[in-house]
């Protein structure tokens, strides 16, 4: 019944001379979570940057909701309903927390099922952000920055949320908090593409898993199958 929302077909990408992605194909089904796992340097961030056209030197085919988005610019891709929470979080230090959120505000593309996000709703989800509303984006702790980055992505009312290692480098308590938010978002039916280094939360949230290693897909399947395959885990995730 459910349709494929994002499809990446034989994607290749380069940083200067180095050939990072060497033919990667993934697809994200509407209403599900796809986790892409892999070690540092496997090409995970490159994959996300290529989808969002932040990285321009790439070949292959990327379609979103049946539309070829490979030739579009980043802002056009985002306006189709894709939100990106990058590994660097991308908070604007010159803007206050509230301005960081307001700048992203956009009406949802698909009307209907899900309720639209607003400043009030986002503040309800992350009360810390409301307390810090008038603070500069540069004055936030790592955890607050991550919350702001996710909240800002939600303000665009996306149909697909792309997250790059959202819990990396955060204190365990904050990690739990963010994992709870993402679980709640999944229950609300939001489609997500989640990148993580290792098993754990990414596996428990995911409906499907793809393992990326040295620029190629090394394994794809359901979380339960991966749990039964220590050899794959050892070779490509180092556990």
């Amino acid at each position: 019944m459910s349709k494929v929302l994002l499809e990446v077909d034989k994607l290749q990408a380069w940083y200067d001379q180095s050939h990072i992605l060497q033919g990667v194909s993934i697809s994200v089904t509407e209403g599900t979570v796809l986790s892409v796992l892999g070690r540092n340097g496997a090409g995970k961030t490159t994959l996300l940057n290529s989808i969002m056209a932040v990285l321009k030197k790439r070949k292959g085919r990327v379609t979103y909701a049946g539309k070829d988005i490979q030739s579009l610019q980043s802002y056009q891709i985002a306006s189709l309903g894709i939100a990106y929470v990058p590994e660097t979080r991308g908070i604007f230090p010159s803007l206050s927390v509230r301005e960081n959120l307001e700048i992203a505000a956009r009406a949802p593309i698909t009307s209907g099922q899900r309720e639209a996000w607003s400043l009030e709703k986002v503040y309800k989800l992350f009360p810390r952000l409301e307390e810090r509303a008038e603070n500069g984006g540069g004055q936030l702790s790592g955890g607050e920055q991550q919350m702001l980055s996710i909240a800002r992505a939600l303000m665009t009312n996306p149909d697909l949320l792309i997250l790059d290692e959202p819990t990396e480098g955060l204190a365990p308590l904050v990690v739990q908090e963010i994992e709870a938010f993402l679980t709640e978002l999944k229950q609300k039916g939001l489609t997500m593409l989640l990148v993580e280094q290792s098993l754990g939360f990414a596996t428990s949230l995911a409906d499907d898993i793809v393992i990326l290693g040295k620029g190629k897909i090394r394994w794809a399947g359901a979380p339960s199958e991966l749990a039964k395959d220590p050899k794959i885990q050892h070779t490509w995730l180092g556990v």
């Binding site: 802002y75 990106y84 991308g90 604007f92 230090p93 010159s94 665009t156």
Partner: peptide, 13 residues
């Protein structure tokens, strides 16, 4: 925001 991080502004549509 564009002075801070152009790419990120683009990624917000």
């Amino acid at each position: 925001a564009g002075v801070d991080d152009r790419d990120m502004v683009s990624c917000l549509g």
